[in-house]
Structure formats: C-alpha cells, structure tokens
Simulated assay, not measured.
Amino acid sequence: MKTTGNTILITGGGSGIGSELAQRFHDMGNSVIVAGRTRASLEETISGRANMHALTFDASTPESIDAFAAEAVSRFPAINVLFNNAGIMEREDLTTRGSTDIAERTLVTNLLGPIRLTNALIDHLNGQDDAAIVNTTSGLAFVPMKATPSYSASKAALHSWTISLREQLRGKVEVIELAPPAVRTELTPGQSTREGYMPLDDYASEVMGLFQQVPTPEEVLVKNVHFLRFAERENRFEQALAMTSAF
C-alpha cells in the first residue's frame, strides 16, 4: 500500500486508534475522510487540517451503510483506501440467562459493518489505482478475553473473513489486517490510563513505520501483539489465555 497521495476513508475516525492514524496518514500527504457516529468528535479530529473531512456513519442497517457509501463516493470520488476501523467492546456475563443485546450489537458493528461497507464500496475500489482495504481486528482475535466473548469472536471472524477477501482480491485490491494489542484508548471505560496497555502515540508511531515497509505486510503487527498473535503457533496458547483472563 502506498502511504502518500491516497484518499482514505477511515471509519471510527473520531477517537482512539482511528483518529490518531487518520491524522498520521494526513500528515504524510493523504486526503482523509473520517467517519463515525458523533459529529463533534469527528470535527475535533479534523480541526485545522486541510484535506481532512468528516462524515457521520450509521452502521446499524444495510440501508444506512449503502446510503453512507453512496454519499462518500459522490463527495469524494478519488477514495482508493477503505479503512474499516469502527468497533465496540463490552463485557458480558454468559453464566446465566440474560439479554443477547451486547452480542448482537457487537457483531453488527464489528463484523457486519466492515462486511457491508466493503461490499458497498468494492465496485468503486476495483476501479481505482492503488486501491487497498485495511481491516482492524485485535490481538484478541487469536486469544480471546473471557470478559468480552462477543468482541473477541467478532474480531476472530473478521480475521478469517479478511484472509478470504485478500485471496479473492489478490492482484486487484490490496487487503491488509491491522491487529492492535491493548492500547490506551477509551474503547472501554478507563482504558486510556490503564497500566500495561500500550500508549496510543507509541502504537501509532510503530504502525506507521510498518505501513511504510515495502511491501506492506499483509498483517500489520506491532511487537506488543506478537505474544497473542503467535501464541498457538509457539505452543503457549494456554499461557496467553491465562493472561487475557486476568485482565
């Protein structure tokens, strides 16, 4: 993936990793459109930056995603990079019968959202030079955290789907997976100050260095996520699971 001269659409661009990477890519000479649910946070991300734009994004239904994709392409026809970054993470108790609202909401946002938006934009991307799709998964795609089962499962599914997408689009559209470790953002309450989590600035700097490698890795993995990503291959899955279970 080239790192300059793109027009990049980033969902979840109003906060956390999405906001930070949007600004980093903008600093490298890209036009960037950030999309999310909250207009105020999007405006904060783009404040004072030329060639950064904000679009509100409703991922709740196929119809809302189709409408959003049509608006994005109409206003920014040069879009050649889709960055599926929006996501939510909530704790769940599976030990007694209860509501499945968290699971359903998580799967719609974290899995169906990227699938539907990719589908809505794939014909457009197929016609663009230097087209790429980046899907944000998680280290928990490879070793789940017991407190967030639906989040972990959604990211594992997105990892698998991304592999299939890459193979189908090989030679047409570049497909990259970004799998973060635990990073200091407000993905969950209090996470931005939690001990042991990677500072957001450090994470973004390492990620941008990996994106500048030639060729771009198919999986963009900072060193802090290797413990989870390669746990099964290195025969220490149970150790890694014990670690995530202790969070």
Rank of each mutant, 00 (worst) to 15 (best):
T11P: 10
R39F: 00
E234K: 01
N84L: 06
E44Y: 02
R194C: 08
L9Y: 07
N80E: 07
P189A: 05
P62Y: 01
R194L: 14
G16F: 09
E167V: 09
Q212F: 02
P189W: 01
E232L: 02
G190T: 11
L42F: 04
F227Y: 12
Q168D: 15
T61R: 00
L178F: 11
L200K: 06
S31Y: 04
G98Q: 03
T136D: 05
H124K: 10
R184Y: 02
A40T: 09
P199E: 10
E71Y: 03
G36H: 04
T148P: 02
P149K: 14
S74Q: 11
L112F: 14
G48A: 13
R236D: 08
L169V: 11
G48Q: 04
R75I: 02
R37T: 11
N119S: 10
G209I: 05
L210A: 08
G14I: 02
S245T: 08
A120S: 15
S245P: 04
E177M: 11
E238R: 09
N6K: 10
F57M: 08
G98R: 11
A78F: 06
P144L: 14
T11Q: 09
T244E: 07
A153K: 06
A78D: 15
L125P: 06
L111D: 01
S192C: 10
L94D: 07
A70V: 07
D123R: 14
Y203E: 03
I46M: 09
P215M: 12
T95S: 15
G113Y: 01
N85T: 13
I176M: 10
A22H: 09
R37V: 08
A54Q: 08
S138M: 03
R105N: 10
D93P: 04
L140K: 03
S47Q: 15
A78M: 07
T96S: 08
Q191V: 09
V143A: 04
D130A: 11
A231H: 02
S19V: 11
E219W: 00
T216C: 13
A132E: 05
T136H: 05
L94P: 03
V108W: 00
G29Q: 08
I88F: 05
S192W: 05
R236Q: 12
Q213H: 13
T193C: 05
W161K: 01
T7I: 03
R105P: 00
V222M: 04
S138V: 02
R170I: 06
D66H: 04
I79S: 14
I133V: 12
K223M: 05
S160L: 05
N224S: 15
L165V: 02
N30H: 07
F237L: 14
T162I: 00
I88P: 03
D123Y: 06
G127N: 14
E206Q: 15
N235Q: 13
N85K: 14
R116H: 00
D93L: 08
R170N: 14
G139F: 13
L200T: 14
T148H: 07
I79G: 10
G113F: 00
V81M: 06
M198Q: 13
P189H: 03
V214K: 15
A72R: 11
V143N: 06
S150E: 01
R105D: 01
L178I: 07
S164E: 08
S245N: 15
I79V: 13
N224H: 14
T148D: 00
S205T: 12
